[in-house]
Structures are given as structure tokens and as C-alpha cells.
């Protein structure tokens, strides 16, 4: 990309000192996030996701390295400048963190009040935000009178009140049921498209990533293992020899299926090669299997197939069985030349 990153980690490390000793939560992170992106951050518990996110608005102070927002080194800002910078970075949390003693209206007005916005402007802005998140009729309710999804909507409205360029979401949908999760994701997508707001989003739910993220960063033990466009992330060739392959597999689909398929194949006396085929984008629509059958004369048996939209692209996964045939190698080379990812799962004799 040619544009300047809106958020940039440079060689950033974060460690915590506790009685149990030193914990390195982030190790030499380099990461650039561009304006208008929705960046997903995934990884196992304790990987350092929250630490990464909280270094952006300096809720946690990095131990070493730099964090740039709009090309300004956040660590060089004075306390006053940092507070102003934070008005440009909204944040929502798993536990919503709304003030229980304030109404929905007052909660959303709060960020505007602390920057001394004139009363009439606050009123207009809060009403506008209430409409955006669809809670105009709940303005005078207290948070305890709302559902989880509604609370998170209020939190989104509050985070957007000062028209920030960046929105940080730390497991914002983890406490919600599937329907509320869906509606919050719709809302995030909408504000991303409407205002071009950059969103950095931590999640445990792989569906969330598939649903709205443009890119994914996979982190483990304080290190970034991968940063990929979301379609490429889900349709990647897994290299079993790569040290990170287990972490990747746990997100894009494991090998546990293969074992069961294998035993079924043995039982049903289906022999030959078991392949997993992943394809995305342009190749998805093309009749790949027909090619294999017609042009190479292979005997192809589809054991499992799945098509889904990830981002705005179609991504397909298939597990097929191919009977032994002299043209197999040529056929696989053909598939790979079409940007299709082919993994040989097993050979059933």
C-alpha cells in the first residue's frame, strides 16, 4: 500500500513485572495498520492481544520501541497531548464499561462534556449517535435496563462521540449471543464504510474475523506469526514443518477431520489420494473438479465441500478422494497453477 499507516508499531515490546517475575507480553512487534482498515487480531489466550491493543492508546505503556498514530510517536506526547490524542481513538470493551449511574444519553454525552462541547452541539450529536445505533427510544434508560447487545451499542456510540479516526475493540462481542454479535458486527461494518474509521478488533471468534475483517494478525507468545489479508489467511497452504503451523491450523481448520475421514475411507474401501483443496476469489467459481475429470481423466469423489464468503470473497474448501491415476501429478500441478491450494492429506492403499 502506498498510503501512510495510521497506526504503526515499531520494534515494540511490552513486559509486565509482577511478584511471580517478568512476563514478556509483546516481543519486538512491527505492525502497520492503514486508514480505513478493519484489522483483526487473533491468537490464543495470553498471547498478548489485549496488550497490543492497549499500547495503541497507551492504556499500557510499552517497555521498549515505538507506537505511532498518524505518524506521531505516542510516547513523546505530553500528558495533555496524549489526552487530546485519545479523543481520536475510541475504545469498546468486552464488559461494556458504561457508567451505571448515568442514562444512555448521559453516557454518550460524557466524552463530549469533558472536552467542553457546547450544550446544543452535544444534544445534536448524541441524538445523531442514538439514531445511528438504533437506540433513540432508550435515551433515558439506565444501562441495567438494557440487553448486552444494546449496552454494546451504547458503548459504540460513546466511543464514536468525538468522531475518532480509530476504534479499538477488545473482545467486544465475546459476552454477546450470536444474534447480538451479528448486529454489533453489522454496526461496526457500517461505521467503517460510512466514516472510514479504522478498526482494530480482538476476537476469539473466528466467525467474527471472517465476517468483517480485511486483514488478520495472528499472534502467539507475544510475537506476530502472520499478517495476511483475510481471504489469504483462510485459504493458505499449511506448512506442517513451519513452527507456527499448529496455531494457524487451530484457526483455519484442523487435521482432526482427516483422521476420521481416513478411517471411513479405509472402512468403505475407498482407495487413492485424499486431498484438501482450498480456493478463493476468481478460481472459486470455476468448475475445477470438472477439469480434473474431463481433461485429466481422473476419478474424483467429493467427500466434503464448503463454500463461504470471507470478507467479500468466496472461499471454498473441499476434501476429495482421487483414485490412483498416472496423470495425478500433472493434475495437481494444474490446480496449483490456478492458485488453488492443494494439500495431500493421506494416501489410502
Amino acid at each position: 500500500m502506498t498510503t501512510q499507516p495510521i497506526i504503526e508499531f515499531k520494534n515494540l515490546s511490552k513486559s509486565y513485572d509482577s511478584e511471580q517475575g517478568r512476563v514478556d507480553a509483546l516481543l519486538k512487534i512491527d505492525l502497520a495498520i492503514y486508514p480505513g482498515e478493519i484489522m483483526g487480531v487473533v491468537g490464543p489466550s495470553g498471547a498478548g492481544k489485549s496488550s497490543l491493543l492497549r499500547c495503541i492508546n497507551l492504556l499500557e505503556k510499552p517497555t521498549a520501541g515505538h507506537i505511532f498514530v498518524n505518524e506521531r510517536d505516542q510516547l513523546l506526547l505530553s500528558a495533555h497531548e496524549l489526552r487530546i490524542a485519545r479523543h481520536n481513538i475510541g475504545m469498546i470493551f468486552q464488559q461494556f464499561n458504561l457508567l451505571s449511574t448515568k442514562t444512555v444519553w448521559q453516557n454518550i454525552a460524557l466524552p463530549l462534556q469533558i472536552i467542553q462541547t457546547p450544550k446544543t452541539d452535544i444534544k445534536a450529536r448524541v441524538n445523531e449517535l442514538l439514531k445511528l445505533v438504533g437506540l433513540s427510544d432508550r435515551a433515558q434508560h439506565y444501562p441495567s435496563q438494557l440487553s448486552g447487545g444494546q449496552k454494546q451499542r451504547v458503548a459504540v456510540a460513546r466511543a464514536l462521540a468525538t468522531r475518532p479516526q480509530i476504534l479499538l475493540c477488545d473482545e467486544a462481542t465475546s459476552a454477546l449471543d450470536p444474534a447480538s454479535t451479528q448486529s454489533i458486527l453489522e454496526l461496526l461494518r457500517e461505521i467503517n464504510q460510512l466514516f472510514g474509521i479504522t478498526i482494530v478488533l480482538i476476537t476469539h471468534e473466528i466467525e467474527v474475523v471472517k465476517n468483517i475483517c480485511h486483514r488478520v494478525a495472528l499472534i502467539e507468545n507475544g510475537r506476530i506469526l502472520q499478517i495476511k489479508r483475510v481471504t489469504e489467511f483462510f485459504a493458505q497452504q499449511i506448512d506442517p514443518l513451519h513452527p507456527s503451523h499448529e496455531a494457524v491450523v487451530s484457526y483455519i481448520g484442523g487435521h482432526d477431520w482427516d483422521e476420521r475421514l481416513l478411517s471411513i475411507c479405509q472402512h468403505e474401501q475407498i482407495t487413492g489420494l485424499l486431498l484438501r483443496i482450498r480456493f478463493h476469489g476468481a478460481s472459486a467459481a470455476k468448475p475445477l473438479i470438472a477439469h480434473l475429470v474431463k481433461d485429466f481423466g481422473l476419478d474424483v469423489n467429493i467427500l466434503q465441500a464448503n463454500l463461504e464468503f470471507i470478507g467479500n470473497e468466496l472461499v471454498g474448501t473441499m476434501i476429495v478422494q482421487v483414485a490412483t491415476h498416472p496423470h495425478i501429478d500433472a493434475a495437481l500441478a494444474f490446480l496449483r497453477s490456478k492458485n488453488v491450494i492443494v494439500e495431500e492429506l493421506a494416501h489410502v492403499p
Binding site: L98, I115, L168
Partner: peptide, 23 residues
């Protein structure tokens, strides 16, 4: 978390006391 919400909103310490902690 409420205090963190205040900090991330850009509140100073006085605002956190008067607008979050006391209410």
C-alpha cells in the same frame, strides 16, 4: 474497567474522580 473507559476517553485525573469515581 470504568476507570479505563474514562482514561481511554481522554479524561484527566480530576475528571475521572468527579465524573466516574464519585457518581
Amino acid at each position: 474497567g470504568l476507570i479505563e473507559a474514562g482514561i481511554s476517553m481522554g479524561m484527566n485525573r480530576w475528571q475521572i474522580v468527579t465524573r466516574v469515581l464519585l457518581p
